Simulated scan of single mutants.
Amino acid sequence: MPPKRTANGDAKKAESKSPPRIGQTGRLILELLTTSEEYTDKYAGLTALVFSEDAKASVEAEDFPVQVLVYDPKDEPALVKAMEAVDTCLLIPPARKDKAKITATLLKAAKKAKSVTNLVFLSSAGCDYAERDKQPRLREFIDLEKLAMESKSDPNTGDTGHSPCIIRELLLYTKQAQGEGKLPIPIDEDHKFSPVALGDVAQVAAHVITSVGPQGLADEVRGQMMVLTGPMLVAGPELAQAASQALGTPMEFQSITVQQAKKILASDQGEEVDDAEKEYLLEYYSLVREGKTAYVSNTAFQAIFGSRGQEMPDFFKAYQSEFKPKKRRVAH
């Protein structure tokens, strides 16, 4: 559950505008929208897109007030109908090899529906620094952003995408590489980046998709390219220090090679990660090694919520179950 935030100076809603009908929300954002008093009265309906019947059952088991749709690329009428039921779409490319094809299919359905005025796309910070031959999975997000923005200039799609916003985030990916008292990351101890907590990304996304302005989204977010990083640059040893402080147990940064990282991702610790996502993670850290992530960009978060966002010790506290060292089982 993301930390509770209070937005500063929410934009005044135009009297002629009703609360948005939101579709294609992610799991964490869905939880935030349906449980936080900050957002529960700011939308008229929710639709969640999932990729399996098991995922649908999982969402429905939470008893969220939401309509759940299982993605079926062969059932275009169902996708178009789902888009016709919403005016605000949060597109989050899935961590799958076919993310580009899925995104294109959903955008095609939105164009046919002609009802999705507000189109918010969750992208990746650093994709503009990625090189197509060296970091193709990262660079792919540039192509996806282009797809998301195309409808705004296409008169044949009605008001689809008329009110857009792109959010680029720089997350901390260490969950898949958890070791015993170590944070093994394929960067050197002097390489720095400014990872943002997933809960903070969810807060910004929720604020954007529930905002209302005279042309769709609130004026302060409409047409924006929001780049979200954490509040400060950190190197591997500083991450380990923050983790030790938060978890109450010694944690040590371990600089590993790309080959070692591949072995970790190929082990049980990476079994739930799609192969394309594994490639993405390795490319992500290659940007860190190249110094292309050595910047801080959380102005948008401060403008909305009046704070720097979640600090590293707070991040490790919030996700301590995923980072605490695992004890080995001793055979008796």
Rank of each mutant, 00 (worst) to 15 (best):
K4F: 10
T6I: 12
A11T: 11
K13Q: 10
K13Y: 06
S16T: 11
S18G: 13
P20H: 05
T34Q: 01
T40P: 01
G45L: 01
L46S: 01
L46W: 11
A48W: 02
L49Q: 05
L49K: 03
S52A: 06
D54T: 14
E60G: 12
P65K: 13
Q67V: 15
V70A: 04
Y71M: 07
K74D: 12
D75Q: 06
A82L: 08
A85H: 08
D87E: 09
P94M: 09
R96G: 00
K97P: 08
D98K: 13
A100G: 06
T103W: 02
A104L: 02
K108C: 07
A110L: 10
A113I: 01
V116L: 04
T117K: 00
V120W: 00
L122V: 01
S123M: 01
S124G: 01
C127K: 01
D128W: 00
E131V: 15
R132A: 04
D133G: 02
L138K: 01
F141W: 04
I142P: 00
I142D: 00
I142V: 06
E145V: 00
L147S: 02
L147D: 05
S153L: 15
P155M: 07
N156C: 02
D159P: 07
S163P: 03
I166H: 00
E169M: 05
K175W: 09
K175V: 05
Q178P: 14
G181V: 01
P186S: 07
H191G: 14
K192N: 02
S194A: 14
P195R: 03
V196Q: 15
V196L: 10
L198K: 12
G199S: 08
A205F: 10
A206F: 11
H207K: 14
Q215G: 10
L217P: 04
Q224T: 15
G230F: 06
P231F: 04
Q241E: 11
A243Q: 11
T249K: 03
F253Y: 08
Q254E: 12
V258M: 04
K263D: 13
I264A: 03
A266L: 15
Q269E: 08
Q269N: 12
E271W: 14
D274Q: 09
D275H: 12
E277L: 04
L281N: 11
Y285H: 05
Y285D: 07
Y285S: 01
T293I: 12
T293Y: 14
V296R: 01
A300W: 06
A303Y: 15
F305I: 03
G306Y: 12
Q310A: 14
E311D: 10
P313S: 08
D314N: 13
Q320S: 14
E322C: 12
F323W: 13
K327P: 10
R328W: 14
H332C: 11
